[in-house]
Amino acid sequence: MIDMFELLAIIIKVLVVFAGTLVGIMIMTLAERRVAGFIQYRLGPNRVGFGGMLQPIADGLKFFSKEDVIPGQANRPLFLLAPLAVMIPALMTFAVIPFGAPMEIAGRVVKLQVADINIGLLYILALTSIGVYGLVLAGWSAGSKYPQLGGLRSSAQLISYELAMGLAIIGVIMISGGLTLNQIIAYQQETGWNIWKQPIAAFIFLITIYAETNRLPFDLTEAEQELVGGYHTEYSAFKFAMFFLSEYANMITAAAFMVCLFFGGWDVPFIDEAALGGWGVLLSVASFLGKTAFFLFLYILVRWTLPRFRYDQLMRLGWKFLLPLALLNVFLTGLVLAVKG
């Protein structure tokens, strides 16, 4: 039976993670615009609040106050369902990601992770694959051609890249021998980060998360120049904001996932977090956030550097390069493990 202490801990963790994700999304929307400005010799939004700090709140208020339009040709039930179908998996995914070293409160160990289920990796993969529905339904239900094209592209793209992503993760699972992120992090603490042992997998994973989160250079589902806005062309006001938020939530989760799989999660190299007590926990959380922030920054940097892939190039890269490479990686990993015994 769940006792009060554990229940309280879980509630607090859920709130912290939920609020943290939302704050992360806010920071990301601002960072995206400011970094984009810096790269283009501009300053970006800097008026609302100190240095533009309150810009995301202003944006949110604007989304709330806009008129919510449902197109006449839209399929109403599915049109209303689609933003939810995108948003809910996007916010649920972070639940299995450990964001810090286990903490000791009143003699009891609290894992800094909302849910430690024994198939953490599959949970994330399953939820990302569920997220496709929102995009496809949004594209279809709007009843107009640009969203339709965006929806088709997204479903084909996500399915193609999910395969390579899954195979890249299998390499990591094979060497660390566990399906939970805690096991993988523990393995990395003992033997060093996975990036050194699975560089090919890390490379494939890095590319595929860009495709899975619909970010440039793989944002063909939105492709402003050709599809207006892709699957969310017909959405307005808060429904559009939900798509927008879930895109950033997915990015944060993907970056955190990348950190957990290949960069040791909350691990700080050469330091034993457990020996440091409370400070170790703080340090581990900081290290996790720092690493995640780095990959989020990389997202932005890549977005404002690389041009978009053409659709056939995208498919060729996915099927003819990444997938065979991922299979090769699995094969090589298996070979090395077999030789080592």
């Binding site: 949970y123 990302t128 529905y133």
Partner: peptide, 16 residues
Amino acid sequence: ALQVLVYAGAIMVLFL
């Protein structure tokens, strides 16, 4: 998880 991943996540997307 496989139920969601394979059936809901992959096969049904193709149905859709």
